[in-house]
Write a protein that binds this DNA or RNA. Sequence first.
DNA 1: CTCCCTTTGAAGCAG
DNA 2: CTGCTTCAAAGGGAG
Length: 556
Amino acid sequence: MPQLNGGGGGAGDELGAKDELISFKDEGEQEEKSVGSTAARTDLDEVKSSLVNESENHGCSSSSDSETDRQPQNRPDLESSDKHRDHFAEALRRQQPDGGLFRAPSYPAGYPFLVLPELAGPYLSSGALSPTARTYLQMKWPLLDVPSTAALKDARLPSPGPLSNKIPVVQHPHHMHPLTPLITYSNEHFSPGTSPAHLSPEILDSKTGIPRTAHPSELSPYYPLSPGAVGQIPHPLSWLVPQQGQPMYSIPAGGFRHPYQTLAMNASMSSLVSSRFSPHVVPHPAHGLQHTGIPHPAIVSPSIKQEPGTESAGTSPSPGPLKKEEEKKPHIKKPLNAFMLYMKEMRAKVVAECTLKESAAINQILGRKWHSLSREEQAKYYELARKERQLHSQLYPGWSARDNYGKRKKRKRDNKQADSTLRDNILSQSKKPCIPYLPPEKTCDSPSSSHGSMLDSPATPSTALASPAAPAATHSEQAQPLSLTTKPTHCSLPVKTSGFSTSGTQTTPHISRPISFTSLPPSVLSFPASFQKAAIHSHHAILQSQPLSLVTKSAE
DNA sequence: CTCCCTTTGAAGCAG
DNA sequence: CTGCTTCAAAGGGAG
């Protein structure tokens, strides 16, 4: 995972990321500060800090986090954070010598568990929550009924408990990468050696010196389950949504509460995690489903948008009592991809930072942020998504994405694409500079960079670094001109500027998606193709794609 | 009330 | 194999 690490050579990524970040910030927080200036950054940070002040530096603003991650400075912070975690963990341990709720280390084994922390995690630090993190905990897990106390104790495992403090949102500290746990967990996949401190997978373990293998039996303790709910563990994914308060897969009836906890465990345990743990208590996934009668989160009540009988859900987890709703085959949603997972996690944060509320705008920002993420960070999500798909496939062996086709009304995508193509053509021909509309203040640095080339854009330090010898690769990220159409408004929301990032002058007129990658480093191979592509992306000039994306389809 | 918008990624489908 | 299309989440906006 040289690439992933990006450590030594991967400066490019970082740089790019920074770049993006900056731009993002501008958009997002342009309120006051000038565009690319570092000073602005600081200010932003402050502002952010106000929002998320408690969170560790990582946690700060959405934009900043990525940035901070990449920066070398982080290391120290990370370390400190680790210390915090250790501390915290230790404290917890003391409190609960018996291994009560909190046992971060124990996660190593199961995917679900790993996932949980991560997802939920955004909030929960992987190893342990820093004290500050704890504060967020409650906020982060609005819907999860987690007794506040419990939450404190078990930062990582906010279990759905008896609580009902639904706090609307909020910013998660994000100090720790949400996915951290995952990595930790799957350190195998990610090169351990290089894994950054923040990733510190086995942090706690190492400290404790106790390699934990989570066994199902062990797990239960971690979750403060409501009596009788023992064994029900929220689906890993469900945790993802804490902010939203909605399960990853919307669960119609019954509410979210432990939709597929057991199920999840089983599945994850058995297949996903089995290799790592001794599956002594792992029921068969399929059985688990029927067994518990708990629908998978992915299953949506037909009421939502169901089509009569198209569904061929392989294992439709139809509960025993078939009601109308249930009679119909449940709508099994597609598993979320990496970006979706990321969105779920970060949306609240972005929303909190921005005044914008429109999802479209938020998504644009998220898209940019996504690109700004380091490969490692993205890798986490890819891995998570991969597991999710695995789990999904196990739960619904017969399910096919095709099943959902036509359930949604067709979008006008056609138009979009057509537009995009037109736009592209136009762009290629006219190559309009993107900047026009950008407000002077914001001067969407990114756009300019995009079109001119990131190289030019002085604003970003990264560019400076990269510019000289930097391989094209590095640019890609920087390029993210995402001029998301900066909107004059507070967050610089996307005003659909058709930001023509004509940047692509050189080669491809328009490349929306990643270029097919030819060879990947072995390390990368483990990742999903998409990820690989992404990696390549980053390595090769990716910018093209980004600019495109930036150019909102709506261009026009 | 329903669909659109917007993002990326995965999967399906057609050529 | 390549490229296009659809769906996944989300929530304000528009019809």
